[in-house]
Design a protein around this nucleic acid. Structure first.
Length: 440
DNA sequence: TCTGCCGGGGA
DNA sequence: TCCCCGGCAGA
């Protein structure tokens, strides 16, 4: 029975895997630690796994490992759920393995592996049998890890270890995404299913819609929010960065919501829903990163200044020359993208997932028109209004002039949730005030 | 006409 | 301060 709740991505730590020993045989163990290279921020797969990630494996026994109890391996070295498959391996004699015999899982050891013929001769000693004897199996029928399910179910195709192995194999041949077997194949497995029934699918859809709303909310986070401050600016060159802010000044290159949150995203059910929780689309992600290599510069928006600095720190220092009050610098500069190697984002598709003010064109439009306003000595607008627009404030005292707030083009609570779900609106929307959830 | 939200007022 | 709503103005 499914609860319908999507499980959070689980840690890989604790996963049972097989790792090669010194003698060429594979030995079972448990992942004890994961070490990701320092530049893991380049990876945005949410779990900080990279092809260079090293896994510390604690072996179950010291046999064949020269007394080692733990050792480090790369992903490609490991056999098990979310890692490599036994398929393609050349098993060495005396390799311990598990096969299904007479409906029961029995352990054995490899006598001979005829790789070309896909035949593995395995010596097994089934319970109740007087003497060990040899059976011939295909490699795909051989498991290096003991199945966690009962022996009674061991003859079914949905063997846990084999599922894992097969998943690993698909990953190797197609992509780094682990596909979830079709629901029907789960029936005999005790492995927890991410979602299978219609009901679960329905709930998943609901979850995804909620997640999408959460993503929209996160895209509107304040530049002062704790999440905002810690990110290095170099991230702004990555279009796939999951980091975004609402500040026109601080915002980075437009980023789509994480794929796993997309209701229409097919990989959601196949990868994010994987119980292993291991989704590594390096090959898919990295080329995309290269497409949109942009240079971000920071332009002072102080009236009649418009100086450009390469770094955020430099523009902040520059703003001190204008006597900008501490903490208000962000309203006096804007981020400008240079050297786009792909068409600039439009207001369609991906941009729909973020407030328009985060769109570079929109920002330039706003900033440009505002600059014109300033230069034309138009009546100064109140700081409040300008702040809402994420545009620079005029360097002038507060005046009674308070033009009406620019109508937001985003979806507001009313649109998102509808009149029927008014209880889900933000307080501001309920009070017919400026939306604080999807606000500009 | 719809919708966002300002401004004002009541509790 | 919270909450509600009339009404304005942009889309």
């Amino acid at each position: 029975m499914s609860t319908g709740k999507r499980l959070a991505k689980r840690s890989i730590i604790g996963t049972r895997v097989c790792a090669p020993g010194e003698d060429g045989k594979y030995y079972s163990g448990v992942i004890q630690a994961v070490k990701t290279p320092a530049n893991f921020l380049e990876n945005n797969n949410c779990i900080n796994l990279t092809p260079n990630t090293r896994y510390t494996v604690r072996f179950d026994s010291r046999q064949g490992n020269l007394g080692r109890t733990t050792a480090e391996f790369f992903e490609m070295d490991l056999i098990g759920p979310g890692f490599q498959s036994v398929l393609g391996l050349k098993l060495v004699p005396e390799q311990k393995c598990f096969v299904t015999y007479n409906g029961r899982e029995v352990s054995g050891e490899v006598c001979k592996h005829y790789f070309e013929r896909d035949e593995v001769i395995i010596r097994i000693h089934p319970p109740g049998s007087e003497a060990p004897f040899e059976v011939q199996k295909r490699l795909e029928e051989v498991r290096l890890l003991e199945s966690r399910k009962s022996a009674r179910l061991a003859d079914q195709d949905t063997d846990f270890a084999r599922l894992a192995d097969m998943a690993g194999d698909r990953k190797r041949t197609a992509s780094h995404t682990i596909d979830v077997p079709a629901p029907s194949t789960h029936l005999g497995s005790r492995k927890r299913r991410p979602s299978s029934s219609q009901d679960d699918n329905y709930k998943d859809t609901q979850m995804d819609e909620c997640s999408a709303a959460l993503v929209l909310m996160s895209l509107s986070c304040s530049p002062h929010s704790p999440n905002f401050n810690g990110f290095p600016w170099r991230l702004s060159t990555s279009p796939d960065s999951n980091i975004s802010s609402s500040s026109a000044s601080y915002r980075s290159t437009p980023s789509p919501p994480p794929r796993a949150y997309s209701p229409q995203s097919a990989p959601l059910s196949s990868s994010a829903g994987s119980d292993e929780g291991i989704v590594m689309d390096y090959q898919d992600e990295q080329p995309r990163k290269k497409k949109n290599v942009t240079r971000i510069v920071f332009q002072c928006m102080w009236p009649s200044c418009l100086k450009i600095r390469d770094t955020c720190e430099a523009i902040l220092a520059h703003l001190k020359d204008h006597d900008v009050l501490p903490g208000e610098e962000e309203f006096y500069f804007t981020e400008v993208e240079l050297g786009l190697t792909s068409p600039p984002p439009t207001l369609s598709h991906r941009d729909m997932a973020r407030p328009p003010h985060e769109d570079p064109d929109y920002q330039r439009q706003i900033v440009g028109s505002f600059r014109q306003t300033l230069l034309a000595s138009a009546p100064p607008q109140s700081p409040h209004k300008l702040l809402k627009l994420s545009s620079p404030r005029p360097h002038s005292p507060k005046t009674p002039a308070s033009p009406r707030r620019v109508r937001g083009e985003n979806k507001k609570c009313r649109k998102v949730y509808g009149m029927d779900h008014r209880e889900q609106w933000c307080t501001q929307c309920k009070w017919k005030k400026a939306c604080s959830r999807f606000g500009d």
